[in-house]
Design a binder for these strands. Structure first.
Length: 573
RNA sequence: GCGCCCGUAGCUCAGUCGGAUAGAGCAUCAGAUUCCUAAUCUGGGGGCCACAGGUUCGAAUCCUGUCGGGCGCACCA
């Protein structure tokens, strides 16, 4: 592949200069970059090697650059190498090396863009982890898509990836769920339940749960005290909610390997074990919390609780792992949960909503303490999505049972639009999601633009087949400069994937695909005014077969990119 | 009051480990279809990269401060 190949060229050139006595050995080369210049008139490939090394080498950047240029211009893969500006080195690539890259796309097919730079490292990505108390709504959507795409991305560079969903089935919210389900159970048995009382979940989605429970238990728990049915109803209702969530996830194409239960974690004594471990190292102690700042709490009174010393790791205050009633706090369980995940992974990544930003420090502290720094841990915060319709905010309120579900949105605009839209923005910037815009203005939606490029290519291939011309690598020497420009852009795909994975920013793939699609559409339209630039030219089957080969592999690259985002590559539009 | 994120064209946003003259889409203006899918393309206008300092060969990018916006600041989850 092109970029690794040229990295080696530069490395070799520097080694050669070391042998010549121009450079001292062992200079730090990690800041050397290799990238296409922003302005194509500067060349195809540019490196800052001379500027980075000049200080340590005791030379002026431009003098060193000249020495490196002399080595590089001797290469077969390079037609020219020049020094520019303060010491940039610009190269132009030979046709042969670009044709070689094009053939690589063809031979690698769906694997073009994949690599093994991350092999041997297992990464656990936890995402979604929505409470099992209702269907998935749009508040969960962005984190789900970003997490899923990130997991794909990490897998594509060779990491072993464990995709995990943490089911919060131990807190008080699932008791509320059980009570809400019991009410619907009574309703299913024919009782008039009236309005849903304050504090219970009012959503209609619990009706079928109540009916199923009535079917299963008859009127066994109609008048029974709560203590008899709470655990049973909790288990049944959580299972039903998770079924529903799994269906919602499937609609969006979100995949998980493991659903970890918080309740199971406690039953297995994992939290006790973590507490014991931390107490033995004096990282958990019994103490009192400070009064909350910036917010008045009416019934505040100091209580002694087991506290984790997160202040030692930069948190504002120590954090309780158990409540005064002796039950675990969410944090207590989460701490044990992360310790458990660290047993089977080298790196952990959590995808959280920005509304949990306040708890990042404590959980980072906990992982650092429990794994003694051996496990890399990163929390990726995904900012809020504001739902709009024609510029008017769409109301969302869980308490009233009134919220926009993922199922509704997928039904309205489709999986591909949702996924692509969620990935056309940095995750740490807020975004608006306007139904009217993504629907009515679908022509302007980047997802269709990219899909259209792929569909257009497939259409050309079908058309060529009718003319009895098929793609072939026999006459690639007939390709012209516009053809090579497309190859250059496609050749960037592997490094885009690699850098997006390293930075954990799936959105970079989306922006790259937009560029690649634009380049192809532009290429295609050259043929409007200049018939000799058309892809299919019935009277010139040799160049046509070469251009078809090019188009086919551009299509392959688009498809590989879309597949990383979980978006279909349309055959026809 | 404190913590985290953000501030780039009229709007929505990119901008790679600090690199060369800051980009794209929408909107706007002017064009392209007897021709492989016009869901496309070509061109024009539009910028104090919030502001002020600092770091250096070089800053939209890193550091400090100010201003503006969002999220959070329970033993909730």
């Amino acid at each position: 592949m092109l970029f690794p190949k040229f990295q080696k060229h530069i490395d070799d050139a520097l080694n050669s200069l070391v042998r010549d006595g121009v450079l001292t050995d062992g200079l730090d080369r990690k800041n050397i970059t290799l990238e296409p210049p922003r302005d194509p008139s500067h060349g195809d490939m540019s490196t800052n090697a001379a500027m980075v090394l000049s200080k340590a080498a005791g030379m002026k950047p431009r003098d060193l650059a000249e020495k490196i240029v002399a080595k590089l211009e001797a290469l077969d893969d390079v037609t020219s190498a020049d020094m520019a500006g303060p010491g940039f080195i610009n190269m132009r690539l030979s046709d042969a090396v670009l044709i070689e890259e094009l053939c690589q796309i063809a031979s690698l097919g769906a694997d073009y863009g994949r690599s093994n730079v991350g092999s041997g490292i297992t990464v656990n990505v936890e995402y979604v982890s929505a409470n099992p108390t209702g269907p998935m709504h749009m508040g969960h959507c962005r984190g789900a898509v970003v997490g899923d795409a990130l997991a794909d991305l990490l897998e594509s560079i060779g990491h072993k990836v464990i995709r995990e969903y943490y089911v919060n089935d131990a807190g008080s919210q699932v008791d509320t769920l059980a009570r809400s389900a019991h009410l619907r159970y009574l309703e299913a048995l024919g009782e008039d339940i009236g309005d849903i009382p304050e504090g219970l979940y009012p959503g209609e989605y619990l009706k079928p749960v109540g009916e199923a429970l009535a079917q299963q238990f008859g009127d066994k728990y109609r008048t029974a005290p709560e203590s008899e049915w709470l655990l049973i109803f909790r288990r049944e209702a959580v299972a039903k909610m998770m079924d529903m969530i799994r269906r919602d996830l499937a609609l969006l194409g979100i995949k998980h390997d493991i659903f970890s239960s918080e309740a199971d974690l406690h039953d297995a004594g994992k939290a006790d074990a973590a507490e014991a471990e931390l107490r033995s190292r004096d990282l958990v102690y019994d103490g009192e919390l400070e009064k909350p700042k910036g917010k008045t709490v009416d019934d505040w009174e100091p209580v002694e609780l087991p506290l984790f010393r997160s202040t030692q790791f930069g948190d504002d205050q120590d954090r309780p792992i158990k409540k005064s009633d002796g039950k675990w706090t969410y944090f207590g369980g989460d701490l044990a949960y992360h310790f458990q995940k660290a047993q089977s992974a080298d790196e952990l990544i959590d995808i959280w909503g920005a509304d949990h930003s306040g708890t990042v420090k404590r959980i980072k502290a906990a992982v650092l303490a429990l794994t003694e720094g051996k496990t890399k841990f990163d929390v990726k915060l995904v900012q809020m999505v504001h739902l709009m319709r024609n510029g008017v905010p769409e109301k969302m309120s869980k308490r009233s049972g009134n919220f926009v579900t993922i199922a509704d949105v997928v039904e309205e605009v489709g999986k591909d639009v949702v996924r692509f839209t969620m990935l056309t923005r940095k995750a740490d910037a807020q975004m608006d999601f306007d139904f009217a815009k993504v629907m009515d203005a679908s022509r302007d939606n980047p997802v269709f633009y990219v899909q259209y490029a792929h569909a257009r290519i497939q259409s050309i291939l079908r058309k060529a087949a009718e003319e009895d011309i098929s793609p072939s690598d026999k006459h690639l020497d007939l390709l012209e400069s516009e053809d090579f420009d497309l190859i250059k852009l496609a050749a960037q795909f592997p490094r885009i994937v690699e850098s997006a994975a390293a930075a954990r920013e799936p959105h970079r793939v989306a922006f790259y695909l937009n560029d690649l699609a634009a380049a192809f559409h532009s290429f295609y339209n050259l043929g409007n005014d200049r018939p000799e630039k058309r892809i299919i030219m019935v009277n010139a089957p040799e160049i046509t077969s070469a251009r078809l080969f090019l188009a086919k592999n551009i299509g392959q690259t688009v498809k590989n990119g879309l597949s990383l985002m979980g978006v279909e590559a349309a055959e026809k539009m």
